[in-house]
Write a protein that binds this DNA or RNA. Structure first.
Lengths: 108, 108
DNA sequence: AATCATGGTAAGCCATGACTAACGGTAAGT
DNA sequence: ACTTACCGTTAGTCATGGCTTACCATGATT
């Protein structure tokens, strides 16, 4: 897992934007439609849609069509990419525990 | 720990750039001077210096003056900021283990 | 079928950021 | 003291990315 890994890059890039972190947290708290996400925010609906595309490609969220609506919910694959990457920089005693977490996650 | 947290933003922004991830990994593998980092890379020394400033402000690396040289090494504070943030999105069985890791890390 | 609701896409504008060249500043060597 | 080595900063250029407006496609409703 090196610095040029594309899925890792997508995940970091996606979460580097405050608006996308906001949307990501909202979706993590409760699955949501695009219109609902745009309703309480100062940006337009197309802007939200573009951000969701970035989050989707980073596998941080996933969309499920439901009628004309699309319900967005969390996708842990992107989170896992970042977590695995960060784990390699943990050493000594901490490394042992993070490795255990990583092992348990891999089981699911 | 919300989406507008400034130290979190700094860490994500710093690692969103491939060149900075490259430098970060090199420093993590072995503490290094600025000139040494620039030597094997296609970018100029000032560019490396600017990237290191971003990594420093994100508390991902730290610099220690040694004569005219400055030796850069890993700073885990920035990593911890991201890790803590990601942990809140882990739930159920996984949440228990990540919480345990978080507790052990806090002890150090 | 006609309309409405929902949301993805395209074009264009503007702000941010990554890079180089040039400069300045400090520590070591002769 | 002068030179050399090492590094941070500034000014300026160019590319990238986020935003809005406008448009198009699809599913539900009457």
């Amino acid at each position: 897992m090196a610095y040029h890994d594309s899925s890792l890059h997508a995940a970091f890039t996606a979460l580097a934007d405050p608006t996308r972190r906001d949307l990501f947290e909202a979706i993590a708290a409760r699955p949501c439609s695009v219109a609902a996400l745009a309703a309480n925010r100062p940006i337009s609906r197309p802007a939200v849609s573009q951000h969701l595309k970035v989050l989707r490609e980073a596998r941080l969220v996933k969309a499920e069509p439901q009628g004309t609506k699309r319900i967005y919910s969390l996708d842990t694959a992107g989170l896992q990419a970042i977590r695995s990457y960060l784990d390699q920089f943990w050493t000594d005693a901490l490394g042992a525990y993070s490795a255990e977490v990583h092992r348990r996650i891999s089981e699911t």
